[in-house]
Amino acid sequence: MSYEEFISELGKAGLSVRKFADLVGMRPNSVSNNAKRGQVPTHLAVIAALLSELGAHRIPIDPIFSRLNLTKSAKKPRGASAVGKFGGDKQGRLELLP
Rank of each mutant, 00 (worst) to 15 (best):
K90G: 05
A82L: 05
L15F: 09
N29D: 10
F65E: 06
G38S: 00
T71R: 15
L54V: 05
A56C: 08
V17D: 03
E4F: 07
I7K: 13
A80W: 05
K72A: 11
T42M: 08
Q91T: 14
G88Y: 01
R58F: 10
H57M: 13
Y3T: 03
V46A: 10
G84N: 05
D22P: 00
S32P: 02
A13Y: 02
P28K: 01
I7L: 14
R78T: 11
L51M: 15
A80M: 08
A74G: 11
S52N: 05
V17W: 01
P60N: 07
Q39D: 11
S81N: 07
G87K: 09
V40S: 01
T42P: 03
G14V: 07
R78S: 11
S30D: 07
I7P: 00
S66R: 15
I59W: 01
G11V: 06
G38D: 00
N34R: 06
V46F: 11
V24F: 02
P60V: 06
A45W: 01
S16I: 02
K19W: 03
T71A: 15
P28A: 06
P28S: 03
E9W: 06
V24N: 01
K75S: 13
A13T: 07
I64T: 09
Y3R: 02
F86D: 06
D89A: 12
H57K: 15
A49M: 07
Y3M: 01
V40I: 11
A48H: 03
